[in-house]
Design a protein around this nucleic acid. Structure first.
Lengths: 122, 122
DNA sequence: CTTGCATTTAACCAATTGAGCAATTAACAT
DNA sequence: ATGTTAATTGCTCAATTGGTTAAATGCAAG
């Protein structure tokens, strides 16, 4: 039911710059400064990426003097992880069921191989 | 290095309508018709969501007479799943290391509790 | 061959996104 | 006080997204 949360998380992950920032943070906290270094984009652009990550709760920022310290919030990945894990498993099972069905069903001359959930009335 | 692929996958998942479509498809193939039914949006809007899902390789569409049959492509979730699983684990470990460090480090009067990777020269 | 249904394409619109530069705020360091 | 560095905010801009309606396409059935 945390649809909005999932939206934020997946959207935040759907960008290579942001994923790279997360990957960097996985090896330890860092200042905005340092996070920006590897990228050829302006500081404001980095700030905005960090805003996106923070709104998705994937990172936490706190002031440290002149700097802003960024670190990961490991919990934030959980919802996304669960969604994907559940579906990955469920989808496979779904395919196994389909395979099973295809194996045990007699195949008449028809090329139709599908399962109708509700017949279409025409 | 499949950054573009991950972009497409995560972006496709970052929408509740599309996730609902995937959830529905997990219980079996369906026609566009049926996928559209639960939603209060127009048919063209559904078509676009399906395009996004197809470009992300999350679904496959094939003509079946008058209809278009949609089904899941379970493999497509794997890359996203691996990215998240890896990071979820790695982040936790990262945090455990940090905890450990905090426990074993003498805490002088300073309120600084962070780990500097590179000291900032001022 | 014409009608009807399923779906897509085309053309448009409003809102969002990702980027840039310039100006601003915050915290140090003289 | 003044200057310096870190980071953010306030524009502007082009591209993308998600939705709409109207028109086109593909098939199937009379």
């Amino acid at each position: 039911m945390n649809a909005a949360r999932l939206d934020l998380t997946f959207a935040a992950l759907a960008d290579p710059t942001r994923r790279a920032i997360l990957a960097r943070l996985a090896s330890g906290e860092a200042m905005v400064n340092e996070l920006a270094r590897p990228f050829a984009i302006s500081a404001p652009a980095i700030t905005r990426h960090l805003n996106v990550l923070e709104r998705a709760a994937l990172i936490v920022r706190e002031r440290d003097g002149q700097f802003r310290r960024c670190r990961l919030n490991p919990q934030a990945l959980q919802a996304a992880r669960e969604w994907i894990d559940f579906h990955a498993r469920f989808w496979s099972e779904s395919f196994e069921r389909l395979d099973e069905l295809l194996k045990t069903t007699s195949k008449p001359k028809s090329r139709k191989t599908h399962v109708r959930h509700k017949p279409h009335r025409r």
